[in-house]
Simulated scan of single mutants.
Amino acid sequence: MAEKEIKLINWLRLAFTPGVGSITMLKLIQSFGSVENVYQQPMTILNNVVSKGVAQSILSDASLTAVETALNWQTQSDKRKLLTLESPEYPTELAQIAAPPMVLFAEGDIALLARKDKVAMVGTRHPTVQGVENAKMFARELSENNVCIVSGLAAGIDRYSHEGALMAEGSTIAVIGTGVDVQYPAGNKGLYREISEKGLILTEFPLGTRPLSQNFPQRNRIIVGLSRACLVVESAIDGGSMISAGYALEMGRDVMAIPGSIHNQMARGCHKLIKQGAKLIETAQDIFEELHFVSSGKKEEKQSASDTNDPVLLAMGFDPISLDSLGNKLNYDFGELCGKLLELELSGQIANCGGGKYQRVFK
């Protein structure tokens, strides 16, 4: 067996050992000089660094099945790769965070990890209509300008950020909180396949790992660690995206946020971040200027409230509005108003928010 393969097996074996996380593994490597040296130590010496239970796990065969499964997974496609902290393809910026993942499962375009211009886009799983449009629009324009979009393939803002990047035939990296063979949520299976073909799927979790709640904050540190900046598109004041913003501050990454309506609960997290010093983002050009990215020169054409003379659109404003409230503002009979709203919805200028409410879409 080649020395390179033996090294990989030892890395996988230690990384998959129960009780050994990133911090413990780093501690062991620092104490004994290498992963190989860890396995040369007797129980008594290991016990000086880790607990007796963990030391016993290290010297047992507890992780060999997971190692064999991972190696078999890698051989099934030339687009699959197991990366360790000492692999040449392992991204430098991720290696420098406080608790870097020891092993990464990567499927897709590995070269994306070497891209310097990467931006994390995060947000709520329950976005408003405008949040969806913002995620797609910003991701598309950033991708058109050779910025790689990094997100978590969750429902909501993550999904639409990936979709926006792919609309521009640009690059995107999806960092998931499960094993690379577990496609979660089920509604994103098609998107998962598209990203594995055109972008990159990345995870630190062993094959078969289910979507446990504690995995996702852990995954967020990788999303941010890979990126130059973290853009919060839409978030509740206590949303999971605030965890990502916290990681960004700890890692010295730029934190950016898109403001929203004062009546939108899903904008309050962004407003809180802006109050705390996050960069207020209104256009993709703001991101290019803040990070000194070079844009392609394409001008963003953003619709403003004054771009129309349509009385219904003008009466709707920026927030969701009920049919009754809209009727009170306008001198339309009920049937005429419903017909007009249907026309605007079919043309993509408004969206039905459910519950009898509509919202204008600004693209």
Rank of each mutant, 00 (worst) to 15 (best):
A62W: 06
Q96M: 14
I58F: 06
S77P: 09
Q74A: 13
K52I: 10
L94C: 12
M102W: 04
V67R: 10
Q56K: 15
Y90Q: 11
K52E: 10
E86S: 07
E93Y: 02
S60D: 05
R80D: 01
P88A: 07
A55S: 15
V50A: 09
V67A: 09
A66S: 05
K52W: 00
T84K: 11
A55T: 01
A55C: 05
A62D: 10
A99I: 07
V54N: 05
A98M: 12
E93R: 13
I97S: 05
S51F: 00
P101L: 02
P91H: 11
L82C: 12
S77A: 04
T84L: 01
L71Y: 06
W73L: 05
L71F: 04
G53H: 09
V67L: 01
R80A: 00
S60E: 01
S51N: 06
D61H: 06
Q74C: 06
A70I: 01
K52L: 09
A95T: 06
N72I: 04
E68M: 05
P100I: 07
V103Y: 10
P91V: 10
V67P: 09
S63R: 08
L94A: 04
S60T: 00
L85A: 09
W73Q: 00
L94V: 07
I97G: 08
T69Y: 00
A95I: 05
E89V: 10
Q74P: 08
I58S: 02
L82M: 08
L85Q: 00
A70H: 03
V67M: 11
P91T: 10
S57A: 11
Q56N: 11
D61I: 07
K79R: 11
L83S: 06
E89L: 15
E93N: 12
P100M: 03
